[in-house]
């Protein structure tokens, strides 16, 4: 969905340099249905990357600050690097139609604890059509899980078919819920063409490694640009 062009599809230059002259942090959005493992992914990514990168997280909760509190409780990052945005019943609006509150949260983090290499933005759990605006993030990960049924990739929708990375999480549960991973892989491929899909189980000690690898690669491209 997002290509690293210096201009967007309308030819407008994308602001990638801060007023200080520094290149701003890469922004990666994580979306997907309720409970698929977005916060678990964010937490695992923070643990995997915090030693090598300067990180911050913005959560978008629907009616609590539960996700931000989970991250704080598990001390995946110092508290000043985690911010919660309130979305007024409409999590998809806050990441797509009216991104102002999220942009401000990212900029405030960058001003307060910067310089940052990477900002992870977690969307409130929503439906299969909720995707991030390219005015807000540079790349987005869509997280679904096998427990939702192996039909989800077939159903498609903008998140499944167009996200920069599709994560199919909770593979450890596949035998329990009777999900056929081969079917999911085939359907994902049909929906996504060349775009990557990763299967993972975040309960495994190193389950996040492939996702972290993908993030590192995006960051290298962002910096080389």
């Amino acid at each position: 969905m997002h290509r690293d062009h210096p201009t967007d599809e309308f030819g407008t230059p994308r602001v990638t340099v801060l007023s200080s002259g520094r290149r701003r942090a890469l922004r990666i959005g994580l979306g997907g249905p309720v409970g698929s493992g977005k916060t678990a992914t964010v937490a695992a990514l923070c643990r995997a990357l915090r030693a090598e990168l300067s990180l911050a997280v913005v959560t978008n909760d629907i009616y609590t600050t539960e996700d931000a509190e989970f991250l704080l409780r598990h001390a995946v990052l110092p508290p000043e690097r985690i911010t919660a945005v309130e979305t007024g019943c409409c999590p998809h609006t806050a990441i797509r139609d009216d991104i102002s509150a999220n942009l401000e949260a990212v900029e405030d983090l960058e001003a307060a604890v910067g310089p940052l290499d990477l900002v992870l933005l977690e969307s409130g759990g929503d439906n299969l059509t909720a995707t991030f605006s390219r005015g807000l993030v540079d790349a987005q990960i869509f997280v679904i899980d096998v427990a939702g049924g192996d039909k989800i990739p077939r159903k498609g929708g903008p998140g499944v078919s167009g996200s920069d990375l599709l994560v199919i999480n909770k593979t450890d549960l596949a035998p329990l819920v009777g999900a056929d991973l081969a079917v999911m892989a085939r359907d994902a491929k049909a929906q996504r063409g060349e775009l990557p899909t990763l299967f993972c189980s975040l309960v495994d000690p190193d389950g996040v490694a492939p996702i972290a690898g993908w993030v590192r690669e995006r960051l290298a491209r962002w910096r080389a640009h």
């Binding site: 007024g88 409409c90 609006t93 009216d98 509150a101």
Partner: peptide, 10 residues
């Protein structure tokens, strides 16, 4: 729908 943040306030 003007993107000025109002949607999150009651």
């Amino acid at each position: 729908r003007f993107p000025a943040g109002g949607h999150a306030h009651s």
